[in-house]
């Protein structure tokens, strides 16, 4: 064995030495260690610092006063009417986008699942390509399309469907469209990856037993892809509540993300920004927990009204 090892470059072999001597579980731990350390240092620790700063006093010359403890930032968050309305708007956006996205994503994933050949590749391509394109591009392209002088309005006007141009952008409807476009690829793939493992015969069995096509999807496909739907909902919801680019470019409203950026970069009010983020994060976790519990219930048999 040692003779064979010597065939290897000596540097490689010596790097392996300390690992090779370890037991199996220690070896596994050594391999996982860098990742664990990375997650601790770049993810867990930063969040504790965020939490700590949210309890610090503001300072006029520095971004926050070190070593101080106060609940003032939280009091400000809860008493500010502006911040409260921003929270409301962000959550409304999150819920609207999630509903639209999940319904469309189930449909689109089903279409991919049921198609084959070129159509299937094309549909998959249409999901993967936007996913690999920056959110900035994905968002601004809606301006020339949806603005009052944009393509959609021109088409509708020339077809005589509308008399005067409608303002889709900037408006909340425009944000919902833009944000849906941003999260839809992730939602479709999350659902499709579960659906692809499903047995088509199960749907056939439901039709064979008298379920119409929409009903067979509702009764058999939806409960089975529930894990994918849950992932899709969580992603859609979390990212839409925290949406930044779409509200900024496509509406005149202010979302949580825009406000927190303003607090951080323009206002330099770190404790307030941190507290606002903590509050949003907690509220989102609560919502996700509720969402999870509700959707999980639909994993089994359910009655239609």
């Amino acid at each position: 064995m040692s003779e064979r090892n010597s065939v290897l470059p000596s540097s490689l072999a010596s790097a392996w030495e300390p690992i090779a001597d370890q037991s199996r579980s220690n070896r596994a731990l050594l391999l996982m260690a860098p990742l664990i350390v990375f997650e601790l240092l770049v993810f867990v620790v930063p969040f504790f610092i965020l939490l700590r700063i949210s309890f610090a006093e503001e300072s006029s010359d520095l971004v926050y006063a070190e070593g101080t403890w106060t609940l003032q930032a939280y009091v400000d968050v809860f008493t500010s009417g502006l911040l409260r309305s921003i929270v409301g708007y962000s959550f409304m956006l999150g819920i609207a986008v999630t509903l639209v996205t999940v319904v469309i994503a189930i449909f689109y994933a089903y279409a991919i699942w049921r198609s084959d050949g070129l159509i299937k590749s094309l549909l998959l391509f249409s999901v993967v390509l936007p996913l690999l394109t920056t959110l900035v591009i994905r968002t601004y392209a809606f301006q020339p399309l949806l603005s009052p002088t944009g393509t959609v309005n021109e088409i509708l006007l020339s077809l005589g469907i509308i008399n005067s141009s409608i303002q889709i952008v900037p408006s909340t409807v425009g944000v919902v469209i833009g944000q849906t476009y941003i999260v839809l690829p992730y939602a479709v793939l999350a659902i499709y990856s579960v659906m692809a493992t499903m047995d088509w015969h199960v749907v056939e069995a439901a039709r064979d037993l008298g379920a119409s096509r929409p009903r067979s999807v509702l009764e058999v496909v939806v409960p089975q892809v529930m894990p994918g739907i849950i992932v899709a909902s969580v992603i859609s919801f979390a990212w839409s509540v925290g949406a930044y680019a779409a509200p900024d470019l496509l509406s005149n409203s202010i979302s949580f993300a825009m406000q927190v950026e303003d607090l951080m970069l323009s206002g330099l009010r770190y404790p307030l920004a941190a507290a606002f983020s903590v509050v949003m994060l907690v509220l989102m976790l609560v919502c996700i927990g509720v969402l999870f519990a509700v959707l999980n219930r639909f994993g089994g048999d359910f009655e239609l009204a």
Partner: peptide
């Protein structure tokens, strides 16, 4: 523990990650 730990950052809005990391 590793799988959820690695996955969670993906589910946190990038704005929150951004300001957290900026402070850090």
């Amino acid at each position: 523990l590793l799988a959820p730990l690695v996955l969670i950052p993906l589910l946190i809005p990038p704005v929150i990650l951004g300001i957290t990391l900026l402070m850090y």
